[in-house]
Design a protein around this nucleic acid. Structure first.
Lengths: 223, 223, 223, 223
DNA sequence: AATGAATGAGGATTCATTCAT
DNA sequence: GATGAATGAATCCTCATTCAT
């Protein structure tokens, strides 16, 4: 979900990226073990009980080892967050480029898939958000958000031909933010798949209607 | 903002309402002093550093006094949250009943006012959300949410005449959730008033377009 | 029950007797109200939750008033203890002087009555003991114990005629200590009256057998 | 001393056994250091001032370390108690099986040794009892008590041949309870060894006299 | 590289006692 | 005399992080 970073009073200065690039395969394995364990602990115990000790135990390593690969608890959480974003947006990016569908159909599909993806990761996300105040503002997070935002704006150029660039961009922001925010709020409620799909469809409908209205207002040199 | 409660791992059972009704004026004053101090601490230090000790110090009272009026840290946070909700929704409720405007105009106004209100309280809200996991599921919170939801559904009956009741309700949920979620995400960025207004207008536009489309599909004995 | 004071490292120096002699009837009434409330709180809530606040509330007075009559929480507890002792030993003293019964029968009755009395006050006593470390060693407690001990030694002179005074006294101590200690341990278990009576009888039997054996060994120039 | 559990208002459910089995020698050392420190603090400061902080400081470790080995203050206290019980009863059990002595002689010896053992641990025991309300009812405590009780009943079968089983058991309970309760009360007074021995002898005498009387009443198909 | 024991600051909450009204 | 609000030291316990082995 498109997370919009926000200003916070105090910004931690310590690096929250990985302490060391896992050069060996063994290290890479260890890192992913820890990340998976962390995800499990977060989902199972909640952010309140998400402690380095518990994560290490779940991963079958010592706390010391955990700190060998993650500079801090915060860094671990950040990595978890980032990984989740990457997975989700890779899929959406792909759909948005699928030329076999007309643009509005692609948007509909993006919305549906996004809601579903959010649903699956809801438990993790909730816990993540509870600890989220810690790194919402890391530069890495900003960079990632900027990237996805750019990609989606490109998609909206296709969706709104003939519409001035600034309006295109704003529409993209409006729709994507609505989608991300709504999906987050909705999936967090633990609804079943059918209900989530209904929400997704209604939202997709709303966005499409809106974009069509925008198109209608455009200088329409559209043929 | 319409907050949708969500399931959380552990639900506290102890009451989170105020420990003692502030009968005397002095007590009332103290309670509001503490609440204001709490809001300041939350905004300034963030939820991580929001401690009873700090709040008491900021309010210029002892921890003991704080606990005389709030049964727990959680209760204090809850009170802060509730007060904010109440203020916001009282205004929206009023607008939604203002018969001098046609329904869709009222919706537009509701959206604008809501975004502005959210903007003003953004700092507090952020911190509040960070601590939110603690009482999102308190019965009192659910009760309040249920009430506002009902009021808004009544409003949507006016907005969507001729539309089946279940569709009315779903549309209300979809639009309000989008509004609440989006306003939250947007205002958190610290944008200036003009920009926030632009977001609000675009969103209002989107909702209106959507509702009009729904109306068009309705059995329409509304000539 | 015969409480044997014991040495403790640190002895508090503050007076634990009542702060002020209740001159007026009103005061006397207040003191007994507080004492009764204290007994109820102790029995109902346990020593852990026995707080001045709770006692004051139960008595329907303010903490301030409580402190007007009892110098400290400790003093209140001490008074409770003392009152209980007095009641119990007044009865036993009376029985031990009842010349309508032969001495050994009186002992039997003393034992039975004592066990029953202990049973009735078991709940209070448990809670009292939990807080007991506080004043086991107050001079007032020692004085009281000394008095009752003397009375009972007098009784044992009748029980063990012809036995040397020092042996009489020692026997008194041995039997009374066994009785007090055993009754305390037994009644604390919450047994029903029949069972407690059985224990009392068995103990009375044991003491009588023992005293008879001592008598048999005595120089017996009696008649 | 045979401690008879009693009902208490609140029963904690969390496990009070050691958090982690001290596998390495170092750990074992630490555990015993803490236990010794705890015993010292308890004896020196009393239960009121027996805090985790103080124990840790006395042991020369941090509170954190203390909690590494004991799940809670309660667990630490419980361990202290248990260790004391175990030591005492192991000795008594051995004596009661010593076939080189006739049964009544063994009982006499049991009583003497018990009084002496209680005397040595009196200071600790006092403090322990003051805090005892906390875990008197732990299942582990009940289990231990049940075990020792059974062992002693077996001994009484030898002491009271020809006496019906139920009477044997009751006599065992009566005598052992009297012994435990009396020894506790007596040794707590800080008497010298000779005096304690005198009490022990007198009590042993009383129990023997009582048991002999019971034997005399038995169906006596003996011989 | 890995371990995991040790640290100790930090946090929520309670309660005996005082004292201004 | 009575009140009860205010105080704040004291308590138990957690957990991110370090570092000797």
């Amino acid at each position: 979900m498109l997370r919009i970073p926000r200003p916070v009073t105090k910004v931690k200065q310590s690096p929250i990226t990985a302490r060391k690039a896992p050069a060996q395969a063994r290290s890479r394995r260890l890192v992913s073990d820890i990340l998976e364990a962390a995800a499990r602990v977060l989902a199972r115990e909640g952010s309140r009980r998400f402690t380095t000790e518990r994560v290490a135990e779940e991963a079958g390593v010592s706390v010391g080892s955990l700190y060998q690969y993650f500079a801090s608890k915060e860094a671990l959480l950040f990595r978890l967050q980032t990984d989740e974003w990457q997975d989700t947006w890779a899929i959406l990016d792909e759909i948005s480029r699928d030329t076999r569908l007309v643009p509005l159909e692609r948007l509909r599909k993006v919305v549906i898939v996004f809601f579903r993806s959010e649903q699956q990761e809801a438990a993790l996300r909730v816990a993540l958000d509870d600890s989220g105040a810690l790194f919402r503002d890391a530069p890495e997070a900003r960079a990632f958000t900027a990237l996805t935002r750019q990609r989606m704006r490109d998609f909206f150029k296709e969706l709104l031909p003939g519409v001035p660039a600034d309006k295109q961009e704003f529409a993209a922001d409006v729709v994507l933010t609505a989608m991300a925010a709504t999906a987050e709020k909705v999936t967090v409620q633990g609804l079943d798949r059918r209900t989530v799909d209904a929400w997704a469809k209604a939202n997709a409908e709303m966005y499409c209607t809106y974009l069509e209205a925008l198109l209608r207002l455009a200088p329409s040199r559209r043929r």
